[in-house]
Design a protein around this nucleic acid. Sequence first.
DNA 1: GATTATAATTTGTATATACAAGTTATGCAA
DNA 2: TTGCATAACTTGTATATACAAATTATAATC
Lengths: 238, 238
Amino acid sequence: MKNKYVEIYNKIVKDIQKGEYSSGDTLLSEHELSRHFQTSRETIRKALNLLSQNGYIQKVRGKGSVVLDRDKFEFPVSGLTSFKELSERLGKSFRTHVHELTLNKGSSQVCTQLNCDPASHVWKVVRSREIGGERIILDKDYILQDTVPDLTKEIAKNSLYEYIENELGLEISFAKKEIVVETVTEEDQEFLDLKGHQQVVVIRSYVYLADTTAFQFTESRHRPDKFQFVDFARRTKV
Amino acid sequence: MKNKYVEIYNKIVKDIQKGEYSSGDTLLSEHELSRHFQTSRETIRKALNLLSQNGYIQKVRGKGSVVLDRDKFEFPVSGLTSFKELSERLGKSFRTHVHELTLNKGSSQVCTQLNCDPASHVWKVVRSREIGGERIILDKDYILQDTVPDLTKEIAKNSLYEYIENELGLEISFAKKEIVVETVTEEDQEFLDLKGHQQVVVIRSYVYLADTTAFQFTESRHRPDKFQFVDFARRTKV
DNA sequence: GATTATAATTTGTATATACAAGTTATGCAA
DNA sequence: TTGCATAACTTGTATATACAAATTATAATC
């Protein structure tokens, strides 16, 4: 409703997802689109750049904006999508178990991660994710109380991101993620259905707000046979 | 030498890497930068957007372009001394063993991946990577002969990408990657020092040229204890 | 019919202007 | 000093123009 180019981007994304283009088709030209949307060419170009960054199209000079085959890779674990969004798209039954919800004085370890004062208070949330009857993901969240004053079990059971963005109105901007494989801990064995697996895939994320403050550190531990990470990456100009 | 905004981007990247800014500092304002580089504000904005996309800065309206702590991103967690060791070893003792370099009629399997004619010819390259005396990565590459006519063992021993981009002048544009964990194969056991590991981390990549043709499919199989994936992700506008 | 040259089309770059929206600094008044 | 309104500054959006570079369509030529 706000930005023209974001609206145009969403409109074209919707068209692509509805299957109005086959992969290899070209969109209307920038001039045609600017006429169609009653706007300037630069505004259209901003929308098309968003499409390009997110892997929907590839712009080819002299030719046009070619629609890419994105269906093959429609498991958007990359980016910053949360568990709830993910499982909704996967369309399976999911449940969240909240094992711990405490407010502690930030341990030195967590505070070095978040770059915060060791005296400040930090929420600790431990949740397991059950998909298709199996508990396969263990999420451990550490959140600064400065930015998120109140947390309830109810919120933790639904979506933290939804609460933070919609209720608190905070703008999550970017995250740094690390993926490694580690041997299982006692905690993993307690809260997950490991089916004999000795190792888990660990995704550690540092989440930042738009004002560059780090407010959340998350450790997401996945059973390896149920883990998948999909990424679309453009080659950076040199 | 070509594009102003790319040049300005590279210049600022170099300044940041030289440590001329501490994290939290702001760059000069867009107006000041445009004066400094003798160019328009829009050109500066293109350079700053590149910096933002690649995790160097965070733009805050009304405030400025805040320099992010990118060093921290490279080594995010305490236990990552091994990664440092790893990258140090990368410079010193890094060897590549070429186990197979053949030109075959594309199997149906590979050609569905690359979306090519089953009659076309496909290079198959199998290489293991030895770091610090241990063979820990097994790379299997499938490359269309249409785009890469000739390949030698010498090229495979050095860098395929370097040859493709610099020698052949092809522009690699984007890739789709998938990361999963799988049980080891006989091939893994033959070419890798698995040290008893039963599983490997598999990165499957589909690499595309600027004209949207898929020309390469790669399967990179890593010993789990030596695997690390680091990612910077911005939250996509909705 | 095939080849070549030309024109038209399409995206890329650079510049310029105007205003909106958010942050910070300033200065005035209580 | 404190508080508040104001001004100054900074990034975001939208629009416009001109030209460059790459592709495609068209027409001319052999």
